[in-house]
Simulated assay, not measured.
Amino acid sequence: MNGLETPPSGCMIVVVGPSGAGKDSLMAQAADRLAGRSDIAFVRRMVTRAGDAGGEAHQPVSHDEFEAAAAAGGFAVFWRAHGHGYGIPASTIGEVQAGCCLVANGSRSSLGDFADVYPSLAVILVTADHDCLVARLVARGRETEAEIRARLDRPEPSLPAELAIYTVDNSGDLTEAGRRFARLVEAIADRQA
């Protein structure tokens, strides 16, 4: 670097929203659509859930492995919800510092932690109407309908006002929502360049 150049500017895009909104589906579509972009990557988080549980492509770990990684500083950000542990690998900090725009499935309750770790942060809130959420969660078969309704009736955590927050409604056609989601990820990444 000759002193006149600026260091690479990467970013972290955290995807949040209620269970059943389709975050994993939209991220998978965007990963396919944006595969030619070397400056955009999708984070594979570590989750204390079986690898064949459906949904996102994650790195399955036991609860003991998760706790050991958390204690050893193996996560940039981690949280626990619904009986599982979720962790974003610590290596993502260096990737963002090197100029990469990363997309990670996150948690609304952990956005403050994300903001503390990643100076350049954007949030994509994926939404869907209530009936759509119920139908999708029932189709998963992981919880009873009563458990699903109780989960959806809980108050939503508020989103920090100081963050850049974008919304994608995924109540309708998945392909169209996937296009909008991918275009939004590209626009955020291009703004960082």
Score class of each variant (00 low, 15 high):
A135L: 01
G87S: 05
I188L: 14
V77N: 02
S38W: 09
T144A: 00
A71E: 15
P60M: 03
G17Y: 09
G20W: 06
R142Y: 09
T144I: 00
A161D: 07
T6C: 15
G54A: 02
M46Y: 10
S120T: 07
G87E: 01
D64H: 13
S158C: 09
R180P: 00
G99F: 14
V123T: 01
R179Q: 11
G17H: 06
S107V: 01
G10T: 11
A69V: 06
L34A: 04
A53H: 13
I188Y: 02
P18W: 11
N2L: 12
S9T: 15
E67S: 11
R149P: 01
G83W: 07
I93E: 04
M1Q: 11
E186V: 02
G106Y: 01
R180K: 04
A81N: 09
G83P: 05
R44A: 13
V134P: 00
A21Q: 02
R151F: 14
A177Y: 01
A139V: 13
I148G: 04
S158E: 15
R154A: 13
S9K: 15
G74S: 05
Y118S: 07
P18K: 12
W79C: 03
Y166C: 03
Q192D: 05
R191H: 12
I13N: 02
D129N: 11
A69Q: 13
L111R: 01
V103P: 00
D190N: 07
R49H: 07
D190K: 04
S158N: 10
L174R: 15
F66V: 10
A90G: 04
G20P: 06
E162A: 15
S19I: 14
A28N: 14
A28K: 10
E65L: 04
E95G: 06
Q97Y: 01
M27K: 14
M12C: 12
V16P: 03
G178H: 06
G141L: 01
A98F: 10
H58R: 09
